[in-house]
Design a protein around this nucleic acid. Structure first.
Lengths: 262, 262
DNA sequence: CGTACTTTTGAAGTGCCTCAACGGTAGTGG
DNA sequence: CCACTACCGTTGAGGCACTTCAAAAGTACG
């Protein structure tokens, strides 16, 4: 449908029919705010690249850095530590997610961010983002959309923790992650890699690793979910969603502007 | 209760030494983004006024209204209902808080908002907010600050639910509300009105009303908190904060620009 | 002065935790 | 190639924080 010949092709020629792999573009397409001509600008944002080993902090509580961090691959987590040593993960950052857009306004970070798996991020100077949002109003709105969706996800996590028992809580998280990975082309129809230990799943859901383990076995027993290593397979997505009451509305995904070959 | 008849006072000269009572202005002063000349503009926002009885919805899931709602007095709550009838409150809206700034971008609301106590709100047309943020960049940044603080509060609530036992959970919420009410001039140094039933406190914290009741008695027994009706008194704020590990950093309050007589 | 809501109390049940140990697996170095 | 190490997953037994259910007592209101 869109035949604009002005595709960017910055260095590598990107053949027109090849499916997009840039997670930021794939994600922001689902905001319903972008046009095709905005995409090259976003692509240029994703550099320079930095690799982060697992378990390393990218941002620490108290930091007020000059760069904004954008996830390109892997998984990172926002977290807070309590004096007793307990940890709560308060957000998962997947490819296409910004880590610390908010520090532009809020100044000091009030939590830390660590890589849970080996990851790749782009470090974008704050002034670049500033300038971009001033010169490209559609991109500005797309980024605003992204932060509002983050907030919406946080609210759903609160519902998850406050009201759902452990088995539905785990199921709901898996439903969300499967969908979020699919949006950025990191998952299949009924399966994906979720590179988290059971302890980390517990830190997300307010449960112990022991209980996570038992719940996963229980879900397998019901035929709702199978886990082997880091690979999560969902035999029947509709069934898993029904089981935990997952409604994707809170992710505010609009249809992608155009379809591409898988 | 305390019905200041002079709430709007749009064009009236505000005497310099008189203490401010407009909650939006009081709150945004703490963002560190505003100058004094921005305040009259904000004051004009707080009209027309609508009164909401307790337990009435202001915004419903699925709505995509043309107005933005701003709390002037009372308390409202964001909430989601689960099919089993359980309710999770996912945010408290105090005087000075906006209810649905996000619907400008996200379209449909993914949750509902109800008044928990008789409340007063202003209904601001979206285009007014739009125009305001374009013409007044400092106000735009102050509003952005407010939404980022909302998100930060949500993260802290998640920590509260996931990691703290019931007694510290209740204590932490009280610490937060006492401070937030103080910011908008609705609380004393060591006491405030929190117009919530114990069932509503439970819906915030993921606990039953029965257990909330027992926890409140326990906190009273330790001399940390006394509750009579809706009045919460904290004999020793530092002690209560230490008990639950409350650190106000997540509210990102900067010192008010100027001090005023109480 | 009844009606409806909220708070309070009791008794019994359970979902999840704690503690502890064992098994699996991958990476490392001799 | 195999032992060593470290981390992760798995299993069991026992305990407790919180829930559920039920009913009584307090409080606000027309």
């Amino acid at each position: 449908m869109s035949d604009t010949p002005t595709l960017p092709a910055p260095a590598d020629a990107a053949p027109i029919m090849v499916s997009e792999s840039n997670p930021l573009i794939l994600k922001l397409r689902r905001s319903g705010q972008l046009r095709e001509e905005d995409e090259p600008v976003l692509r240029d944002l994703c550099t320079p690249i930095r690799r982060i080993p697992a378990d390393q902090d990218v941002v620490r509580e108290g930091d007020s850095g000059a760069d904004v961090h954008l996830v390109l691959d892997g998984v990172l987590a926002r977290y807070k530590l309590l004096p007793e040593g307990r940890r709560q993960i308060i957000g998962l950052l997947l490819p296409g997610d910004f880590c610390d857009l908010q520090s532009v306004i809020l100044g000091e970070m009030d939590h830390s961010i660590a890589a849970l798996a080996p990851s790749t991020i782009a470090e974008v100077p704050q002034r670049i983002v500033d300038a971009l949002t001033l010169s490209h109003s559609r991109i500005a709105r797309a980024l605003w959309w992204a932060t509002l969706v983050d907030e919406s996800v946080l609210r759903e996590w609160l519902v998850n923790m406050g009201q759902r028992p452990a088995d539905r809580r785990v199921a709901h998280l898996v439903c969300e992650l499967l969908l979020r990975f699919q949006v950025v082309g990191r998952a299949e129809e009924r399966a994906c890699e979720i590179p988290l230990t059971q302890t980390e799943l517990g830190d997300i859901l307010g449960l112990t690793n022991v209980h996570i383990n038992r719940v996963l076995q229980d879900l397998r027993g019901r035929g709702l979910l199978t886990v082997r290593g880091r690979r999560f397979e969902v035999p029947d997505v509709a069934a898993l969603r029904a089981f935990c009451g997952f409604d994707p509305a809170y992710l505010h995904l609009r249809p992608a502007r155009r379809l591409e070959g898988g």
